[in-house]
Amino acid sequence: MTVAARPWAAGVRGGSPAVLLVAWLCGGLLLAFILLPLIQLFAVQTGGSMLQVARQADVRDALALSVGASLLTAFVAGLFGVPLAYLLARVNFRGRTAVAAAIDLPLTVPHTVAGIALLMVFGRHGVLGEPLETLFGLRFWGTLAGIVVAMLFVSVPYTVNAARIAFEAVDPRLEMVARTLGMGPLQALWRVTLPLAWRGIATGLTLTFARSISEFGAVVILVYYPMTAPVQIYEMFLNYGLESASAAAALLLLVSLVLFIAFRHFAYGRRLIAGSGR
């Protein structure tokens, strides 16, 4: 059988085997390019080095802060992003495409630029930072609130976009049918549309979380202290060199990966890999 003779083309109907072989080669190189540095990061650890760095209070604090701030960011992104996504998916209002484009803007802004722009708004003398501190005592420099603001700016597009696509995939007529079956508008949303869009929303929240925990540029400019894990690693790299920084880096990578896989598991049921069918 030709299929058995060309394992790279197994299970595929149509498509030239030669094209598929080239596609596999390109894809394989790309996969190696992504995985090799990450594997290498763990490979150089002596085991003791990661344990030792995990015992340092400042590293542990930085990791905990990163995880906590990222979770909080994902929560805030869901709170404000999901309703906006619903509007974008369901209401054909004037300027809808402009709003959708504005939501994507943070993806194109360099993160150091984002940090500086945020500083001008939320900083000590920023247009929001100053009145908010005077009125409510809410400060954004050197605080968790500042870290969340920086993370939210760069990561909220993922939640809005994923949730919008998820809502668009839910037939609006299902919500109508729910209404005729005696459900009020909120009940129909809660019992029919949200459960059906949940997987997409959860994917968006997971991406927002992942993007938040990996954010460095915006956070380091708006809030240097208290240090999140990426800032801490940067500081270790500057002060103590590659070896101790790499141990902390491996630790952060481990924590991020475990949480990322756990969230995906949560969002997709038992399936760990997205897109492998429903």
Partner: peptide, 11 residues
């Protein structure tokens, strides 16, 4: 509102 009209809606 729709939920109080008692209509059966088949789509």
């Amino acid at each position: 509102p729709p939920e109080r009209r008692r209509v059966g809606f088949l789509v």
